[in-house]
């Protein structure tokens, strides 16, 4: 598994598509795709939005992430870093922020390669690119 993290609009998806020879149709968007697609897609983007959807459905995002790691080992997973602000006033936002952090830690631990994007520039922070 390859994990790409970074702030919003840093060029994560475009980088994934070009670097890992994907087409945009290979990319399942966590904000809108079917959950089953996440378990088979070559690339899953907006994973932080998928976490929000899972929470709103009453599912445990960590259990789903565990399933993703087990069933879609070759996936490129893309998610925003969202934890670098002040604690949100809304409880649901705090729960989401915590769940995204924990899922991100799990994905990073399982991934062979973790890449962080800033201003379109990738930095490999775990493993080595093929």
């Amino acid at each position: 598994m390859i994990l790409i993290v970074g702030g919003a609009f840093q060029g994560k998806t475009n980088y994934a598509v070009s670097r890992f020879s994907l087409s945009h149709s290979d990319v399942a968007r966590g904000s809108e795709c079917r959950l089953s697609d996440v378990l088979s897609a070559r690339c899953v983007a907006d994973y932080h939005q998928l976490v929000r959807r899972l929470l709103s459905e009453g599912s445990d995002p960590l259990i789903f992430t565990e399933q993703l790691c087990a069933e879609n080992e070759a996936a490129v997973v893309i998610m925003d870093e969202i934890g670098c602000g002040v604690i949100p006033l809304e409880k649901s936002e705090r729960i989401w922020r915590e769940a995204v952090g924990r899922c991100g830690c799990m994905l990073a631990e399982r991934a062979d390669i973790v890449i962080r994007m800033i201003c379109g520039i990738p930095t490999v922070i775990k493993g080595e690119l093929p």
């Binding site: 870093e81 969202i82 934890g83 922020r97 915590e98 952090g101 924990r102 830690c105």
Partner: peptide
């Protein structure tokens, strides 16, 4: 340092 819930 780092973001919230990020293993610090």
């Amino acid at each position: 340092t780092g973001g919230s819930k990020c293993g610090k």
